[in-house]
Amino acid sequence: MRLKLGKRAADAALSAFEAQVCVHARAAYNLARYLMGNEDEAKDVVQEAFLRAYRAFDRYENRNALAWILAIVRNVSYSALQRRRAGPDAVSFDEQLHTDSTIGSDTPFVTPEAQLDRQQSAACLRDLIARLPIEFREVIVLRELEDLSYREIAQILAIPTGTVMSRLARGRSWLRTLAADEGAEDAL
């Protein structure tokens, strides 16, 4: 009897988790991808973050599932980055940046030209964001791509909202400088 109840409760927990938290998989991956700098590690981070979130879901009382899962993604990413720095073959170069996802080098001519232009400019823009130091990169991603408020970002990063604003301002002006240096203003 109790085991039956346990199973039903566990199914309900999983359904609730999927309905409230898994819907943010896209946002979670996007943040992880920007923090880790490559697709493989970002995927691992997302898996681990959702597993951690699921195990903590019993104690979850927060109303803001998006901010909650992004905070966990950020923690897991930072731990992974630390391990990477401590590792023997520290990789700082983002090898996959130019090869993975939308502009695979083997498929440039199958898409219509307009589409290709757009994809290249998107890749170029993501490349620029990737070159920002991490503390500026993460506020840009949280603000512009996940549309979080200064307060939500401040909570996730455990910094004052004033710092969120100044990092955003610096990050944005940095991005424009990078774009100008690259002659890539049209990416913006």
Binding site: A10, D11, A13, L14, F17, E18, C22, A25, R26, Y29, N30, R33, Y34, E39, A42, K43, V46, Q47, F50, L51, Y54, R55, S101, T102, R118, S121, A122, L125, R126, I129, I140, V141, E144, L145, R172, A187, L188
Partner: peptide, 28 residues
């Protein structure tokens, strides 16, 4: 801001959502 918002998203890799679901179900 407009450029970042329209072009800055990394697309979700194929199969990630499915493997996420798999992970969670086995954890459950």
């Amino acid at each position: 801001q407009h450029s970042i918002r329209t072009e800055g998203h990394w697309p979700l890799p194929n199969g990630l959502e499915a493997s996420l679901r798999q992970t969670l179900h086995s954890a459950a």
